[in-house]
Simulated assay, not measured.
Amino acid sequence: MVRGTRAQLAEKMAGEVALSDDPGATLRKWRTDFEVPQTELADHIGVSPSVISDYESGRRDNPGIGIVRRLIDGLLDVDEQRGGEHIRQHARVLSAGFDSDVVHDLREYSANVGVDRVYEAIGAEELTRGGQDSVAGHTVINSIAAITRLSSDEFYQLYGQSTNRALVFTNVTRGESPLVALRVVSPTPNAVILHGLDSDSVWEHAEDLARIDDFSLAVTNVDLDELLAGLRSLP
Rank of each mutant, 00 (worst) to 15 (best):
Y159N: 02
D153P: 01
N221G: 04
H138D: 10
N142G: 09
A124M: 04
N164Q: 08
L167N: 02
Q132L: 13
A191W: 00
V168S: 01
N112F: 07
R232M: 12
I147T: 11
S216Q: 03
E125T: 11
N112G: 13
F155S: 02
N171M: 08
G114V: 12
V140Q: 02
G131C: 15
R174C: 07
V113L: 06
Y109M: 06
L227Y: 03
Q161L: 09
R211Y: 05
L158H: 01
V202S: 00
E125S: 09
V113T: 05
H138V: 14
L127K: 10
A218G: 07
L182V: 11
D198K: 08
G114H: 12
V180D: 04
G160W: 02
A136I: 10
E154G: 03
L194N: 01
D198P: 04
Q132N: 14
G131N: 15
A206R: 02
L209S: 04
T163A: 07
G196M: 09
L224R: 12
T148G: 07
Q161R: 11
F169C: 06
S186C: 14
A111Y: 13
V185R: 10
L209I: 10
R129D: 08
N112A: 14
A229F: 08
D198C: 10
T163F: 09
G114Y: 06
T148K: 11
A181F: 11
